[in-house]
Each structure stands twice: as structure tokens, then as C-alpha cells.
Design a protein around this nucleic acid. Sequence first.
DNA 1: GCAAAAGTGTTTCCTTTACACCCATGT
DNA 2: ACATGGGTGTAAAGGAAACACTTTTGC
Lengths: 229, 229
Amino acid sequence: MSVPRLAVTVDLVVLTVREQRLCALMWRRDRAPYDEAWSLPGGFIQLDEDLPVAASRLMAERAGLADVRIHLEQLATYGYPDRDPRQRVVSVAYLGLAPDLPASSRAQVLWTAVDDLIHHDRAAFDHRRILCDGVERARAKLEYTSLAAAFCPPEFTVAELRRVYEIVWGTVLDPRNFHRKVTGADRFLVPTERTTTRDGGRPARLYGRGDAEQLRPPMLRPPPERRVG
Amino acid sequence: MSVPRLAVTVDLVVLTVREQRLCALMWRRDRAPYDEAWSLPGGFIQLDEDLPVAASRLMAERAGLADVRIHLEQLATYGYPDRDPRQRVVSVAYLGLAPDLPASSRAQVLWTAVDDLIHHDRAAFDHRRILCDGVERARAKLEYTSLAAAFCPPEFTVAELRRVYEIVWGTVLDPRNFHRKVTGADRFLVPTERTTTRDGGRPARLYGRGDAEQLRPPMLRPPPERRVG
DNA sequence: GCAAAAGTGTTTCCTTTACACCCATGT
DNA sequence: ACATGGGTGTAAAGGAAACACTTTTGC
């Protein structure tokens, strides 16, 4: 029997925390279908290219982020037959977590607040769904991994890390208990000798990312009644 | 520019607990490449078929499990260029968790202990890697979801559920603390009026699966020093 | 009666939570 | 001086771990 062959793309959900909001890197479409809608940056994979390689390439080519330091992990694969009206496309989505980097020089690529994208649904194809899945993955992973630090610059304060949690989760966390939890966690943070007053008040110690991946025991999101935003 | 088109398959990692071991449903190959090696059941997706539909179809056709009650979730997608020596194939893996059902009537399809598969590596293609990823996903999900019950028949005792945890994790758990944890968890278990003595000793209450998906707070695996097996 | 497994009680320990309070800077 | 945020202390609440003990069956 003959084997069906399909177009395969990689789409990127690249998240960052910017101006007190969770933002995704979105591509402004300039042609049909979904002309002028926002889509996730992505593209077809090449015949000799592994999936993570394609994701990195597209991160540079389409998202304008050639930097290797960005955390990239596979999110999920979407393949229902009519998700692209032109042809059948199976799309492997990758999730990227980035510090607040300057956006691409292209006007077409912009950091856009996730809340706006989700509530107003101006996303092309099934990209709203993919974006939601990426956001939920990020929210869940902050609980039991050290990935929140991927949203921070190489050196950051505990308060900056806390703001990542608060913005991604839409909650308020107690600064004092948060401090104890993350500084007490094994290899989550590596202290430096330096401090900063860029957030005002008493100087805060600067930390770098440790090599722990897991956070055990996890830091659970507060139950919904305490949510904010 | 021309769009490359690739063959896309769905591969199934179907796990169960059988005879005190974690087992996967494996397909005995009878042709090159990897003649006589074990592979995951799977097949090409059809042109008009969504991915979960293809997974269900292959679960019936190739795995011999037409039953809908089996938990099925997407695992990951594997696509490095030479993973199949014949042609480039992108494979979307699904993870299935099943109770100890009679295996398929086909002699080609057999429940095989995961330990043996992993340690002796008689798996075709990159299926050992996919199997490992599926097993690790299952182990992790027992911690913070109620998925362990997916390995149990419709009615089961707390001790049977505990054995699932012990076998999947390769640990020993305290029966008394485990009992309190799972019976106290919200909507994890729904008690029936019935009891059984099939495990010997004092009659044990039979429970059905509740509708909770999350288990919060999670039940963390004991640290490695307490591992068994 | 005895073995075996179910299930409860209890104590200890650890983590989280809530919040009082002090510290070190900029203005 | 005082506002601002950083960081520590501490007590109460909750869950996990360890284990003694009772219950209910089969043999």
C-alpha cells in the first residue's frame, strides 16, 4: 500500500515576561489565509533536519532569537486534517522560555501579551489552542522545576524571580516565604557576591541559575480563590 | 519554494501491570529492517485522520485493544532523519495505560516486561528511547495525577492500587500511609458497598475510579535510596 | 488458634503559611 | 527622616513518615 506523505512544520511558542505581563512572540501574517492575524513563528522542516534542529533554526530565522541560551522543549504535535485550509499540515510545537530580550528587528515579529491573544482570539489557524497549551505547560512546570529562572537574565534577584511566578501564575506570593523556599532549594540558585538596588530599597543579592532541573518538594500554585489578574 | 513531504506514523507505548511487572505491548517484527526485534505497535496515519483517531485505530488494529476505556495521551514526536533506514519518518508517540487485559489474539503482539526490553535493548528503530520516555512519563504522572487507577480494573482495592505504584516506581510504600493518602484525596476513589478477599486476609473495600485528574498535594516518589528492584 | 492482610490511632518530623520585625539602601 | 523593598524569626497549621495496634477474614 502507498504511504501518505504530509507537510510537517515546527511552530514556536516563545514566552517571556515583559512589562509585568506574560508575552508570546507572534508573527503578524500578511497574506491569506488569516491575513493580518497573529500566528506563531514557524516553518516547514527540511528533509535532513532533526526536529530540535529545525526548532532552533526557526527560532533564529523566524523569531529573530539566534541566542542558544533559550530553553526549548517539545510541547505537542497537532495534526487534525483541516487545521490549515490549504493542505494537510502536521505541526510539532516547541515551547521556548526566554528572558526579556529585545524583540526581533522585523516589524512583523512582536512580543504580544498572552492575555490579549487568548481573550480576543486574533490568532491564525489553531494557534490559540497551541499557545494555551504552551502557557499551561509553563505554568505547570514552574511548580516542580527550576524553569522560572529561564525567564530571568543571567543574574537576577529573588524578587525578580518571584515576579516571574506571580505574572505567569497570576497570583500574589508572600515575598518572605518565597525567598526561603527558593534559596533553600538545592541547586536552584547560585549566589553571587554582587547585589543590586535596581528594584529600589535595600540591596538585593544577585543569583545565577543553578544546575538543578527539579524542584522537590514542588512549589504548588495557590488555590484559585487567591488568584489575581 | 517546494514543501517537503514526509511519512508520518503513530507509535503506541501501551503499558500495563502484569504479574508484578510493568509491561509494554510489543510487536514482534518479521521482516527487515530489525527482523525479529521488538517494535512498538504503530502505523502510518491516513490522510483524513486526526492524530488521536489514528492512535485509537491503531490501538484496535495493531495492538488488539479495541476497548475505549484505555487512557491515551500524546507522548512526544520523534523525527530525526535516519531513525528509519528506509525513508524519513516522523513518528508521533502516544502513551496508553491499560489494566491487565488479555493480550491480543495475535501471536505477534505480546506483553513484555519493560525492564527486559530496556536492559537487553532488543527494540527496533529508536523504540527503546520512546519506550523509556513513556515509562518516565507514567512514573512522573503517578505522582501528581490519579492515573494509577488506569492500570486497575473497574473495581479495585487500595492494596491493588498501591501495588501499581510500587511496581511502576520500583519502590515499597507503607500500606497504612498510602491508604490514608488515597482514600483522603478528593474524588480519586469512589467507594462501593462491596468488599473482596481475593488478596487474602481481612476483606478489603472495593473502589471505582473517581473523576479527579489531579492529585494535590502530590504523592512524591521516595528518594532513590529506598528503591527496590 | 493462627496467619494474613485491612484499616485506625498516634507521635514525630518537616513543610508551608502567616505575619512581626529588623536591615540597608535612595531620596 | 522616611519610604521602599530585602531578608530573618517565629509560631501555628497541615501533611508525611514511622510504627503500634485492632479488625476481619481463610485455613
